[in-house]
Amino acid sequence: MSEEVAPHTHFQYADATHQSDTAVAGMWLFLASEVLFFGGLIIAWMFCRHWQPAGFDAGGRETVLWIGTLNLFLLITSSFVYSSGLAFMEAGNIRRLVQCCVVTMAIGTLFLLLKFYEWHIDLSENLFPAGPFKITGTDAGGARMFWSFYFVATVLHALHMIIGVGLVGWVAVQARRGAFDDGWYTPVEVVGLYWSFVDIVWIVLYPVIYLVGRG
């Protein structure tokens, strides 16, 4: 193995592509574990909805539909923007990449602001499962459980979103500092994988939270 080492390559890798493929594979494996993480939440939702269909529908009807739908379109657009940023990076156009990162971060922040606003609406309407609860009667138990899933799922997703925005910001700062060139841009790719995965989680959570209750 040659002693002179390509830039940015840790001493245990043969060359840059060897290391970048490893990083991508490592991220995909981490995403597989995240699939199981949210999968645990989905099976819990399926179980409880099986036992309390009426309560879940009552709870589902109280969700703020327009914010959820707008957020879905926002995240799909952000995936598109970041992906085209990656395409610019492959062509070596760092200025465009930084712009795409900024737009992605803007969309992400807008998503979070809408989500905080939605939580504000929910909390003001006594929809937090503990304490005084808006829905009473026989459906109270099921609705209370629906809303506990709603808050656990959306808080976890929002945390992943905040980490995502932070990562995209880090990529933008590194890019402006000239850390990447068309020969080596692995972190851009890896953060892209993470960002699109958080988008996929919302794509799956959206019908579960907003649509199933209203069908």
């Binding site: 819990a44 179980f47 409880c48 036992w51 499962p129 138990g141 209370r144 459980m145 506990s148």
Partner: peptide
């Protein structure tokens, strides 16, 4: 929060 996800008295399922 004792919301009943696993508490049968509030509609949850301990087997879950």
């Amino acid at each position: 929060f004792h919301v009943g996800v696993f508490d049968p008295r509030l509609g949850g399922d301990p087997l879950l």
